[in-house]
Amino acid sequence: MKVLNLHSELDKLIKKAQKQDRVAQYRLYEMYSSKMLSVCRYYIKDLQHAEDVLQKGFCKAFLNLKAYEFKGSFEGWLRRLIVRQSIDFLRQKKSILIPTDSFDSFPIADNPMDEVKDTTHIQEAIDNLPDGYKTVFCLYVLEDYKHKDIAQLLNIDVGTSKSQLYKARKMLKDILLNNQKKTMP
């Protein structure tokens, strides 16, 4: 019952926000801004830039809120919008330079990350990845995108997406191993 009530309340809030009700929009912002900034932070190393992207993303979301048809979760809709906004930012920065090498099959790289639970270390490792690798890795691992969707979103081949993921995983493993070595006494 509580879940249903929460859903109906959220729907009411969204409907009000669709009519450009600032209070409703602020409430939605309060609910999702922290999570969405975390999403932006996957792709954008600099927090200030991530905030700029979040600002643009929220503006776009509120201005185009009528496009949300209450099919699927609002969070998912907003998250996809924020991800697209982050990728657009990287494109504008021209930092996504993905090589066109294509591999049909890649073995799963051994990951030394099983024991890693500290978000700061993980984020630092992801930040050290080149933007192309990082984007594909985050889309595939963190956003559950398929290679086909990634290829369409980034305007690359499916094979390229796969190769980028393989390289990202390998590089991330190396980074984490190095970090472990540094922290080891």
Partner: peptide, 11 residues
């Protein structure tokens, strides 16, 4: 593990 850890994160 990475996914679940980062999903819980809020900034």
């Amino acid at each position: 593990n990475i996914k679940s850890t980062l999903e819980k994160r809020e900034i």
